Simulated assay, not measured.
Amino acid sequence: MPAFAHEFPFDPTYGRTREELLRIPAPAPPADFGAFWQSRYEAARAVETAPEVGALVEERDGVRIFEVTYLSVGEVRLGGWLVLPAEGPAEHGFVIGHGYGGRDQAGPDVPLPLPRSAALLPCVRGMGTRGLVPEIPSVADGHVLHGIASRDTYVIGDCVADLWCAASALRELVPGLGALGYAGGSFGGGLGALALPWDDRFGAAQLTVPTFGNHPLRLTLPCTGSGESVRTYHRTHPEVTDVLRYFDAASAATLIEIPTLVAPALFDPAVPPPGQFAVYNALPPGSPQPHILQAGHFDHDGTETELKALSEARAGFFAQHLTDGEA
């Protein structure tokens, strides 16, 4: 296990060895878990997303990056970035989720996982300068609690719908795309796990240090991320456990049927590794082996090397599963 010098008041490995992490299960979902999410998916698919392409922001790495907006559930118009090949038609399509804190630009999500690709990089509601909604907190600690008293009002459900609507908008803007790829890390990794079981438009996915895995266990683990806000809320509102059961990324992962590459970390102060590994462990037999990171949400001497290796693994994974082996 990694032994990083740190000043956290807890152990970001949570005392688990790699072998122990690989045995952490997913909690059993509620009996109506599937019906709940299928209903939300159908509502999202019924949305006329009316995407609008705005200004060209920049051209680099063989693509042009445009501002874009689209409608999601609740008639909320969200912003983000549309990425298109600088030359020739798009042969692949991606929806790329972001971490907690949102995104203010396309940034490190470009270059895309595969060349000759189009992508929609949405800012889900409440996040980033282009996803701000007046009544939703834009800071992670507040955002993760918004509407949490009920499964029907919890903001995380609508954020998942924002990803489904992003896929709809991308397909409208770039007709003829085949199966889409999904990539997301941290917050975007957890949202992706919740979104993927219901949407057959996606053909492969890559989730990095995914959050929201195994909520019953997460509630026992201190952290520096949004989970700490939920833990604090739970102390005075223990009934929230019944709501969280519907938003467990590990429970959802048991139902993912497409190839999914998970990159969990052994050491992570923001998203406890036991929850990350629970997402990977929940995938069906025959899923790709995990791409295990030494650390997540923590800069160390090997960070740049790890990120480069992950980028290469992601590209190879999508080349295999979205292009029949043709890079």
Rank of each mutant, 00 (worst) to 15 (best):
L120F: 09
R116E: 13
T254S: 06
T220N: 10
H297E: 10
F212P: 09
V262N: 10
D11A: 06
P259S: 11
W198G: 02
P222A: 14
E87Y: 07
A313F: 00
G184D: 15
G286N: 14
T13P: 00
D158K: 12
G188R: 00
A90E: 03
F247M: 12
L196K: 01
P197H: 03
F247Y: 15
H143K: 01
L221M: 13
R23L: 10
V155C: 08
V160Q: 06
G176K: 01
D32I: 14
L293V: 03
A270I: 09
V271K: 06
N281Q: 04
G176P: 02
G126T: 12
G147N: 06
P108H: 12
R201D: 15
T260N: 01
H297Y: 11
G185V: 01
A149G: 13
A313H: 01
R60A: 12
A161Y: 10
A149S: 14
T13W: 04
P137F: 06
A28E: 05
E67Q: 10
Y246W: 11
A35T: 13
A265F: 13
V76H: 12
V47K: 12
C223L: 04
L114H: 07
E20T: 09
A169I: 04
F317Q: 02
R103A: 15
V68G: 01
P122F: 07
A319K: 10
A55F: 05
H321P: 15
I292T: 04
R125K: 04
A167W: 09
C123E: 15
A327H: 08
G93N: 13
P89T: 12
D301F: 04
L196Y: 02
H143V: 02
F202G: 08
T17Y: 01
F36A: 06
G176F: 00
S138T: 14
L221N: 12
P216M: 09
F94I: 06
A309V: 07
I136Y: 01
I148P: 14
G62L: 09
S311K: 05
L22N: 00
A327W: 10
S138G: 14
M127E: 14
G184P: 15
A43R: 14
G79K: 00
R130E: 15
L191A: 02
I136Q: 01
D242E: 10
R130N: 13
G99W: 07
V243M: 08
V63K: 08
K308I: 15
G34V: 11
L207C: 09
I136P: 00
W164Q: 02
A118F: 15
G192D: 06
P30L: 02
G74F: 05
Q320S: 02
A270W: 09
E67V: 08
E306R: 05
V209R: 09
Q276H: 09
P290G: 01
E239S: 10
G34M: 05
R18M: 07
G176M: 01
E87D: 06
L132W: 08
T236Y: 01
R16M: 12
S311N: 00
F33Y: 05
F247Q: 11
R245P: 11
H291V: 04
L293E: 03
V139P: 15
I156D: 03
P272L: 05
L322K: 07
Y154R: 07
H146W: 03
M127L: 13
R64I: 06
V133K: 10
T220Q: 10
F10M: 07
A140N: 06
F317H: 02
P284G: 03
L310H: 02
D199A: 08
P9H: 11
R171F: 04
D32R: 14
A183W: 11
A119E: 07
F66N: 05
V68A: 03
